[in-house]
């Protein structure tokens, strides 16, 4: 990266690969509180070279006593932070289990929806019904449900579903929406026993395509 040595490089060219301007430049401070050493180097640049760059960009900084003393100034911090870098990292599994135990005990019931039986008081929590219908939507390739809400229709047990979706663009959206609607209606009737009369679907996001997954393989972690 050739840089004219006679003036400080513009900000946009800095940091692209973590190295600074060519050696020998009498740098103009790039940070308001930066410090220039007697030999004309920026303290920020000296520290970056000491801590952040893999290769020695400026041989002067490595050899000059002023610069080396300035770099030395960080050694106490670096030594003290060693334990933070390499110390025993607490396990995530036990933490995740504890969090999920608490979460499951505090299940958000939300509204209660009537199951389709006029003679008995049978209800299902909106969150539970939403979970099942979201999975029905998710079973349609190229679709993933986001929100799933229910609205009562009339005085009886009828319900209207309002769903938002992330959808892939490899097929016309109306086709995909139609598939999702069919899947959701079928699940509402055959898995739950909810009297869903309509399903409103809005696509709110694009789903990134992924390679098709064979049964038995789990997708890679995020």
């Amino acid at each position: 990266m050739a840089v004219d040595e006679s003036h400080a490089p513009p900000p946009e060219s800095l940091g692209a690969d973590g190295t600074g301007p060519k050696p020998g430049a009498a740098d103009v401070p790039s940070f308001a509180d930066d410090v220039v050493t007697p030999c004309g180097r920026l303290l920020s640049r000296i520290w970056e070279q000491a801590r952040d760059t893999a290769q020695a960009a400026d041989p002067h900084i490595s050899s000059c006593p002023h610069c080396r003393e300035a770099a030395e100034g960080l050694s106490a911090v670096t030594a003290a932070s060693q334990a933070l870098r390499t110390g025993d990292r607490p396990g995530l599994e036990a933490l995740a289990d504890r969090v999920m135990n608490i979460v499951r005990a505090e299940v958000r019931l939300g509204r209660l929806l009537p199951l389709a039986d006029p003679d008995r008081a049978l209800r299902i929590a909106e969150s539970a019904a939403a979970k099942v219908l979201r999975q029905a939507a998710d079973r349609v390739p190229g679709a993933r449900a986001a929100a799933c809400r229910f609205v009562p229709v009339g005085d009886g047990v009828d319900l209207r579903v309002t769903m938002t979706l992330a959808a892939a663009l490899d097929r016309p959206l109306p086709d995909r929406i139609h598939q999702v609607r069919r899947s959701v209606l079928r699940s509402a009737g055959q898995d739950l026993g909810l009297a869903v009369t309509a399903v409103d679907i809005t696509v709110v996001d694009v789903l990134e395509q992924e390679p098709p997954c064979r049964p038995g393989l789990t997708p890679g972690g995020a």
Binding site: L109, L115, A128
Partner: peptide
């Protein structure tokens, strides 16, 4: 005796 049933959650295969 009247009974009310509320389904609060579902366990699925997943």
């Amino acid at each position: 005796v009247t009974v009310e049933v509320t389904v609060t959650g579902v366990v699925t295969r997943y």
